[in-house]
């Protein structure tokens, strides 16, 4: 299982290294759809990767998805592939055969990246899933990520279905949270690498700035946050594989909180170390940090997910806190 995952992640990393260069990212922000990249992603079968084999997909799980989404984040992939994968998975979960091509994922209140390119839209409110073919899109643009961000004009759904209980009442939000957390974790890996490189080459006072303890301490802190985000995301993916999206609500929420916090801290540190050059349009750093900031808000900011965790814990009370934390991946004692 994990061999297949590693192989796929490597494939995606390679594809994006070739096809998601800064020029493509910038062009995408200016409204040019990265057709070649999308076509290759389709050729690899990625959009339907989470759909069961019987419905034309590859049958991967949420843990695999999280690893792939993290790879998308590492390259700030300028296509909504993660959303399309999640949308297809939810449709398939409700027994609706997902159409080919880009499927947009509808989240409450959110504009949809590249909605205008999507032939279809999946919605999954209240334990149902619905497939739409929007009649039109109100076009917009993300303030921070700068990508096209559109809102659908809906007609009647093409198909509707009930999701199995394991998906819970807000499956789309949970999948979206896992996606955004994973992308943040991936982008953080990249900006940390970029910044270590920069610190080792940029010289001031006759030595690389990476030799200064103040800089080292910042980057060490950043590395701790990057590691935490990655572990939180992997843990959420594993939990969703084991217990379904709804059963993994705690882990997904924790991943969104930790990745969001790590994103804030990490972006702050890498900009501080890059200083003025990193504040320029020319430098590629912001191609990643702006997305980190945007993804923090995608599928609910840290505040929302933290409250969910906190409300549940407060309701259960102190006597259950530790037992609840440790029992999640363990069979109860006989």
């Amino acid at each position: 299982m994990s061999d297949i995952r590693d192989m796929l992640v490597e494939q995606v990393d390679r594809l994006l290294s070739d096809r998601a260069d800064p020029a493509t990212l910038r062009a995408a922000e200016a409204g040019t759809w990265p057709e070649a990249l999308w076509a290759e992603a389709e050729a690899l079968g990625l959009p339907l990767a989470l759909v069961p084999e019987g419905m034309g997909g590859t049958g991967l799980g949420w843990g695999d998805a999280a690893a792939l989404w993290q790879a998308l984040g590492r390259h700030a992939a300028p296509i909504p592939l993660g959303e399309s994968m999640a949308a297809a998975a939810l449709l398939a979960g409700a027994g609706i055969t997902p159409p080919t091509g880009l499927i947009a994922l509808g989240l409450p209140g959110e504009a949809i990246a590249w909605g205008r390119r999507a032939g279809h839209l999946a919605l999954a409110p209240g334990g149902e899933a619905a497939l739409h073919a929007p009649t039109d899109w109100q076009q917009g643009r993300g303030l921070i990520a700068r990508e096209p961000a559109d809102r659908p004009v809906l007609g009647a759904p093409l198909a509707e279905g009930r999701l199995p209980g394991a998906y819970g009442p807000d499956a789309a939000l949970l999948a979206g949270a896992l996606l955004n957390a994973a992308r943040i974790a991936g982008a953080l890996e990249t900006v940390l690498l970029m910044t270590v490189d920069y610190a080792n080459t940029r010289k001031q006072f006759g030595r690389p700035i990476g030799g200064f303890q103040a800089v080292q301490q910042l980057l060490a802190r950043c590395a701790g946050e990057v590691a935490a985000a990655g572990v939180a995301v992997a843990n959420a993916g594993r939990a969703a594989d084991r217990r379904g999206l709804a059963g993994a609500e705690f882990e997904i929420a924790a991943a969104k909180v930790v990745a969001g916090e790590a994103g804030g801290t990490g972006a702050e540190i890498v900009h501080q170390v890059h200083a003025a050059i990193g504040f320029t349009d020319d430098h590629p750093l912001h191609l990643f940090t702006r997305r980190i900031w945007a993804w923090r808000d995608g599928a609910g900011p840290e505040r929302l997910w933290a409250r969910r965790i906190g409300d549940a814990a407060l309701a259960r009370g102190g006597a259950h806190l530790w037992a609840d934390l440790t029992s999640r991946d363990e069979e109860p004692a006989a």
């Binding site: 935490a228 924790a254 916090e261 906190g310 814990a313 934390l325």
Partner: peptide, 19 residues
């Protein structure tokens, strides 16, 4: 303010536990 603050702590605790 407790739910959010407690939620952040638990998100961290669970992650550190895995690490």
């Amino acid at each position: 303010a407790a739910p959010e603050a407690v939620g952040r702590l638990l998100a961290r605790a669970a992650t550190l536990r895995q690490m």
